[in-house]
Nucleic acid binder design. Structure first.
Length: 378
RNA sequence: GGAUGGGUAUGCCUAGCGGCGAGGGCAGCGGACUGUAAAUCCGUCACAAAGAAACAGCGCAGGUUCGAGUCCUGCCCCAUCCA
């Protein structure tokens, strides 16, 4: 892997990440396809059309269904879902958080009850790396624990210490797996994850420790899980400077367009979020004049596209009124068009961010974009 | 004309079988969603700004009963079948 910084403006970075599956232009928004599918009937062919550079899938979800061993037999995730650009797999660490009622955390790893059929599943650092190696993603994420934002300081400290020990194990196991003959992607990359909830000093200590481990990239996890935006920005201000500057930085699970603009400004390269896809399925559309809810009756007779001038597959052809009709009629096409629009909006915003960084106009672009999205032209 | 089954709130469907100040679903209207257990979830949906108190409503009219959407009588409508 090669990480090359092309431009910097303040702490914002314009860079490229070269991988075995191609070069990623950053800052980048990864499109989330948890179960090797972008929900809303969006295909990988669609992703190419809307400018997706890198897709994200999930270790836990693919392990419980259809199984990483099966996917390995079918040639790995790229071949399986017919996507030859980079893929990042999340480690299952977030499911330790999101499936809180269905798991027990121990030093060796996490015991889950499958959300599909209740069967017992054990996942620790080695298991997560093994599954991700079977999936043969471009970038594997370390297996971490994502503590709730409101967790007690003492709990967060012990959780972060354990996550650090898990990271050592992830690194060792990844090295071992990459050296095996039957490993599909022997150059699988490993990103570590910073944790520490909203305690800046714990975050900083942790950032320093994992920075010494010479990983391929570094993520900030455990944000946007209930804390305020101000707290999140504050943590980024405090923590990102302690992560290696010569490696990509990834803010996990974030976020709104405004969150992304603020985080780029604080040095983040990679993002992912379910918002564009989930909100799309729910009829909420992102535009340069704020978010709109197409279910609202005021759009019943609105013959305009979701966004005037947008080149996405929905806006090039269909009106708000028609898409609203599809949504109300529960036609799959309605959700699909909305998801395509939202992902296109996010991907396009990232292109604009990169262009602005290229020309040294990010600060102006950010202000203009935020002002525009806060205006109400819908 | 006869037989049978039905008429439940602002639109539709439906639970109810003596304590109902009537439950649920759809539709409608609005909201939420941040490394996806989410095409999900929540609110609202007679009147009242809201709370206390009080109060409308189960086809219509009577009756029985401490108490009736529920039981009885008559009538009106709807559906199906038979003449």
């Amino acid at each position: 892997m090669e990480y090359k910084i092309l431009k910097q403006e303040g702490r914002a970075k314009r860079a490229t990440v070269t991988t075995v599956h191609g070069t990623i232009q950053t800052p980048v928004f990864m499109n989330v396809g948890t179960v090797a599918a972008i929900k809303g009937a969006v295909s990988t062919a669609d992703l190419e059309e809307i400018g997706t550079q890198i897709e994200l899938s999930n270790t836990y979800h693919l392990h419980v269904r259809t199984g990483d061993e099966t996917i390995k037999k079918l040639g790995g995730l790229h071949k399986f879902m017919s996507w030859n650009r980079p893929i990042l797999t999340d480690s299952g660490g977030f499911q330790v958080f999101s499936l809180a009622g269905l798991r027990r955390i121990k030093e060796e790893g996490v015991y889950f009850n499958s959300h599909i059929d209740g069967r017992k599943i054990f996942m620790g650092p080695e298991e997560s790396m093994h599954i991700q190696s079977n999936l043969a993603s471009t970038i594997a994420m370390a297996f971490d624990e994502c503590p709730p934002s409101k967790a007690e300081r003492s709990y967060v400290q012990s959780s972060v210490d354990r996550t650090t020990r898990w990271l050592e194990r992830c690194k060792n196991e990844m090295k071992r797996l990459n050296s095996l003959d039957d490993t599909i992607n022997k150059e699988q990359l490993l990103f570590g994850i910073n944790q520490g909830a909203v305690y800046a000093d714990i975050r900083i200590e942790h950032a320093k420790r994992i920075s010494e481990m010479d990983l391929d990239g570094y993520a900030v996890g455990g944000l946007a899980v209930g804390e305020t935006h101000e707290e999140m920005y504050h943590i980024l201000d405090e923590t990102v400077p302690y992560l290696p500057k010569d490696k990509p930085t990834y803010l996990m699970g974030v976020g709104t367009p405004a969150n992304i603009l603020e985080a780029v400004d604080r040095g983040v390269d990679f993002f992912d979020c379910v918002y564009p896809s989930r909100n799309g399925r729910h009829g909420h559309l992102y535009t340069n004049h704020g978010k709109i809810n197409l279910f609202n009756s005021k759009y019943e007779l609105d013959g305009r596209p979701i966004e005037e001038g947008c080149q996405c597959p929905a806006c090039r052809r269909y009106s708000r009124a028609y898409i609203r009709h599809l949504l109300k009629a529960k036609e799959m096409l309605g959700m699909r068009l909305c998801v395509l629009h939202n992902l296109y909006f996010y991907n396009t915003m990232m292109t604009e961010i990169r262009d602005a960084l290229d020309t040294g106009e990010f600060a102006a672009y950010k202000k203009r974009k935020l002002d525009s999205m806060n205006s109400s032209g819908n």
